[in-house]
Design a protein around this nucleic acid. Structure first.
Lengths: 236, 236
DNA sequence: CGGGAGATTGACTGATCTCAACCCGGGTGG
DNA sequence: CCACCCGGGTTGAGATCAGTCAATCTCCCG
């Protein structure tokens, strides 16, 4: 879900004060964060950090969309999730002190604020509500990861693709004409579903033939969400 | 890794004070936990809690082994992980307040202490080190879950089975004769790997033919770990 | 000794991957 | 202005990994 307060370029502090992660900081603690400078900018296609690199702080997305993925043994990517305004990246590595286990790449021009690990840790120690919020975020991700494991292990590619379309809808919403508000290549779709590009292409045309979706290049229009949900065998 | 202090039936407090989760509690905070009563006992095969049920506290395993799994759409199980002495179950639901997303079943006679969610929350609020430890645990699980997603999505069943054998070795160790110290049915192995029981059987006999393992009923002896690691295409 | 659960094996099937050819639109340089 | 190139996108054919079904076996237990 998008944050209520969108960051437009001059209200960073307000943006942070309403964000999922930092909503429970005191005014004083917010001032402690480096919010007087502009966020770092990343052009579409720019890499924020790479798998295996040492990162030791939070990357808070203020604007844009980032894809978070792992590169498998044979060089094929697996997209784990996307980060949108209000989301945090680098969470796991900051807490565990391990190297980054994912690469993060901007797929739309993005703006990101970096919060050092020391700052995060001192906030955890001094602000129990903040600690609880972090735990919530980690646990939510964990729940989703567990669902994903079961899905990939048990569902067919067809079911998973339907599910991914529904999830993209929930994450990025539809525009007025029911088009998904996110632009992905077929290859990226395949990297989410965990399949070959060609399989995605074939199944998308099937869905199109069945009048479940409409395709205009990368733009995907959802015509029959109920049927897609049914195909996906989702819990809800 | 097993805890240095094993719980034998009369030193619960010491066991907790050395555990990954509660190691940073003060003596006073430890006394606050319900450690004067005996842990709950679960016979082999007993279910601790079921997917979809409301749980609101930590289940701390003192003894035994618990399998943690989700039941997929078609009724097939997917084992997410195992809990051993010192591990916590029900973590996620306690923090997020959602219903349990997994079923937990004892596969060896087990003993478990229940710590209420209120107690956990008050400890998070009052003890920053404890909060950090919880975050660590959540983030470790998250990292493993992400690895798992990539594995299942990209590796062959053969590679995954080899990897699972290695992981079981790391989690449960080998006895003096190099046998895995955990007894699983072929079906359970299949539920970890995410495949059919028959596939596990066939691949295990292949591994046996290739002198990588030896089989005696459910007992699995690791003969050539290096080769298994190679087959699994693991990072380490 | 009969029953039942788990393990094994074989045969068959089919979903999905791979390989290879081809298309299409946009950008570029001659 | 046009031919070319290049990165996606699409389609078809063939190969294959792995799942299903079914029969059989083994072992343990009452």
């Amino acid at each position: 879900m998008l944050e209520k307060v969108q960051y437009k370029g001059d209200n960073l502090k307000e943006f942070f004060s309403k964000s999922t992660v930092f909503k429970h900081l005191t005014d004083e603690q917010l001032d402690y964060l480096p919010l007087d400078q502009d966020p770092d900018r990343y052009k579409r296609g720019a890499i924020v950090y790479e798998e295996g690199s040492r990162i030791s702080g939070f990357f808070v997305v203020c604007k844009g969309v980032i894809k978070i993925y792992k590169t498998g043994f044979d060089g094929k990517d697996q997209i784990i999730r996307f980060a949108k305004p209000g989301d945090v990246m680098g969470f796991r590595s900051t807490i565990t002190g391990e190297l980054a286990c994912t690469t993060t790449k901007s797929i739309e021009d993005s703006e990101i604020v970096y919060i050092s690990g020391e700052m995060v840790k001192s906030l955890v120690m001094s602000n129990g509500d903040f600690a609880m919020d972090l735990l919530q975020i980690a646990c939510n991700e964990l729940g989703e990861a567990n669902d994903y494991i079961t899905d990939i292990a048990q569902k067919t590619v067809r079911e998973r693709l339907a599910e991914v379309l529904i999830q993209l809808k929930m994450t990025f919403n539809l525009d007025a004409a029911n088009y998904l508000q996110i632009s992905l290549t077929r290859e990226e779709l395949a990297s989410i579903v965990g399949t070959a590009t060609e399989s995605v292409i074939r199944l998308l045309s099937e869905f199109k033939q069945d009048k479940l979706i409409e395709l205009q290049g990368r733009r995907i229009r959802i015509l029959n969400e109920a049927k897609l949900i049914k195909i996906s065998n989702m819990h809800y």
